[in-house]
Amino acid sequence: MAQHQVNYASSAGLPIALTSVDKLVNWGRSNSLWPLTYGLACCAIEMMASGASRYDFDRMGTIFRASPRQADVMILAGTLSKKHSEFARRLYDQMTEPKWVISMGSCANTGGMFNTYATVQGVDRIIPVDIYLPGCAPRPETLQYALMMLQKKIRRESANMNNNTKSNLRLV
């Protein structure tokens, strides 16, 4: 977002700030990312810690919501078992567009140490993922960093989600 301070002396005293629709919309989207309260395994403990007072997600405009209808980020925090994968996908489908996904921890990224019959080997097999967050478990700082990277990513998106190609979403 461009100008936060409006110079009332210029522009004939009118409070005018120039921007583009994309920037305005993305400013709103990126600064109030509401994740779904959805923990799968031990990583969820770190996610809870990120939301609690010590690390304080609220100051980034990130407030956990208990309903997928109100959420726009899904943090897949933990081991996704095959039995549960159906429900994870259903929750993702219930979220309204635009929506983003953070895959938190080795288990969500690749199955991690659970190279077994019962674990989904990477949640990107069933849900498109925006940010992969390594670690077992990632510390709350890491999750905050992932969220900041997601904000950065959203700010370079087009407000019209249909225009978003792979190239303009790339993080550098």
């Binding site: 159906e86 077994t116 019959y117 019962a118 069933i126």
Partner: peptide, 11 residues
Amino acid sequence: MIGDEFASWYE
């Protein structure tokens, strides 16, 4: 241990 054909495509 890593599951059979059915398990690997379950989800």
